[in-house]
Computed example of a mutant assay.
Amino acid sequence: MGGVTIYQVAAQAGVSPSTVSNLLNGRAGRMLPATRRRVEAAIEQLGYRPNRAARQLRTGRNQVIGLVVPSVANPFWGTFARHLEATALEAGYHVLLCNSEREPDRERRYVDELWSDGIRGVVLCSSLPDLSHLMPVVDEGLHLVAFDRTAQAGDHESLVNISLDNVLGGRIAAQHLLDLGHRRLAFVSGALGSVNRRERFRGFSDALEDAGLDPAKALVWSGGPSHRYGDLDAAGLGRTAAAELLATPEPPTAIVAVNDMCALGVCAGIRDAGLRVADDVSVIGFDDIVLADLAAPALTTIRQPLAEMAAAAFDHLRAGIDSGDPMPGQSLLMRPELVVRASTSPVR
């Protein structure tokens, strides 16, 4: 039904227009559950659709936030987007999704467009160490939350960083394999140019050093300095890496992959070589995407608390948007969790 107004919804529900407005604008905290159900039923029956342009003129805010991820080709980012959207919708916000492939120019174009459309908050997930390409927009008033990235020297004073403790995650992954008796370990990644990947590798190296092994002698596959991050085909990257590593004179008995999609590709490469995952080569991933538990064998991995991290990202973003002023920069670090499944086993 076209042209339905907030007053018609109020009349249908038997409430005041301000009560309907409170629900639409995320201010239903003190509303009786029965009242909320009546208003929601009236909205559904009448087919009411809020006018976003009018709401922005009335409140001075655009109830939309931006989300810039490397690529939803990796299910990890699709899951994060789902959690962030669910949290945002509860507060009356919507989410616009952009895929940047970690290219600074592309990120800047997306963020410029979002800013031009009145969007004042963005969650950025590329984990690049240098975000100077976005600072002109931040200086204009954009509220930016960097996800899966720790604070770096030269960051803007208002930047919020929310991340897993990736150093600890990399250490836990390597330690799990060391505890199983493995000593020939490999680390597989695309380019090590992002903050999260560098930190995972650092944790991996720290665990080897603590075990009396020389990290410099560990097998590290990143595809070379010109290799891209592999966000569009992480599984293919892992498969190629496994083929090359297993063809070396002293192949690894265990492999740490930078993320789960890469790990699944590594598993495929192990099978291509006529070997068995876990029995011949143990594999551990990172993220705990939904495919990890469905793989055969199921993938041992490092779990990120995505729902909590998405909620924290939105809360920080909304606080900045609501204040209308630059917020002091903050950093939030969350703890990883080892999830042991069938893709790792004691060295033979």
Rank of each mutant, 00 (worst) to 15 (best):
G3Y: 01
Y7N: 04
Q8F: 00
A10M: 06
S21F: 14
R30D: 15
R30Y: 05
L32P: 14
L32F: 04
A34V: 11
A41L: 15
A42H: 13
I43M: 12
G47N: 14
G47I: 11
P50E: 14
N51A: 07
L57A: 10
N62E: 08
Q63T: 12
L67V: 04
V68L: 05
H83I: 01
E85K: 06
A88W: 02
A91G: 13
A91V: 03
H94T: 13
H94V: 03
E101C: 02
W115K: 15
R120D: 07
R120N: 15
G121R: 11
G121K: 01
L134N: 12
M135Y: 10
G141F: 01
Q152P: 15
N161L: 00
L168W: 14
A173K: 08
H176I: 13
L180Y: 06
G181A: 10
G190Y: 00
R202W: 14
S205C: 15
A207E: 05
A218G: 08
V220D: 15
P225N: 06
P225Y: 01
L232P: 07
A234Y: 06
G236S: 08
T248W: 09
T248S: 14
P252Y: 03
A254Y: 11
V256F: 12
A257E: 09
G269R: 00
D272E: 10
L275K: 03
R276N: 09
V277Q: 01
D280L: 08
D280F: 03
G285R: 03
F286G: 05
D288A: 03
A292D: 15
D293H: 02
D293Q: 15
A295F: 07
A296Y: 15
L306M: 08
A310S: 10
A310N: 13
A313C: 14
A313I: 04
R318W: 13
D325Q: 14
Q330C: 10
R335C: 05
T344N: 12
P346S: 09
